[in-house]
């Protein structure tokens, strides 16, 4: 079974994934980049919460000017080996200033969760009999990081400097 974890808690997903539907249903939806481009004005006029899902060959630079319209941006990992969305996530958070939900979807392995969190993802669709338990265990794997990212966690270098400084 799968579950959506957001900010470390199980979360009832209010969004309907409309990316495969010919008609866009009522209520909060997640659309594809193609749907967004085709129905941009109508989707904005609905006044409902909106999300967009980007494939791994679609850079978020394509929606850089539209970020204010989205409550969710879902970045797809078509295969766990496809690591493009890690870079997209950092660009969204650190460069484009996107601050709302950033969701990892597709083949999301527990081993990858801490990398995703560090790149700015805060929501994950997790395939596991116990999604929350699995998430918590994986999130506790590491407590030391060498690289600075936009998540603000202190790096080993920062901790060393704090100690000696």
């Amino acid at each position: 079974m799968s579950g959506l974890i957001k900010n470390g808690e199980l979360f009832d997903d209010p969004f309907t994934d409309a990316t495969g539907s010919p008609e866009i249903p009522d209520g909060p939806v997640i659309v594809s980049l193609e749907q967004w481009k085709a129905h941009r004005d109508a989707l904005i006029a609905r006044g409902k919460p909106l999300g967009i899902k980007l494939r791994s060959d679609q850079s978020p630079e394509a929606i850089a000017d539209d970020l204010a319209h989205f409550n969710v941006i879902a970045l797809e990992f078509p295969k766990f080996r496809d690591g493009r969305a890690y870079s997209y996530a950092r660009i969204l958070r650190e460069r484009l200033g996107y601050a709302k939900e950033l969701r990892a979807v597709g083949e999301v392995l527990l081993e990858q969760l801490h990398f995703m969190m560090r790149c700015g993802f805060d929501a994950f669709v997790i395939q596991d009999p116990d999604p929350l338990g699995a998430y918590r265990k994986a999130a506790a794997d590491y407590t030391v990081w060498y690289q600075p990212t936009g998540d603000g966690r202190p790096t080993a270098m920062a901790l060393r400097r704090r100690k000696t400084g």
Binding site: G83, S87, F115, W145, Y146, Q147
Partner: peptide, 14 residues
Amino acid sequence: RQYSVLHPEFSYLP
């Protein structure tokens, strides 16, 4: 070495 160990963005390069 330190920079590249378990880099969150670059652990799944092509």
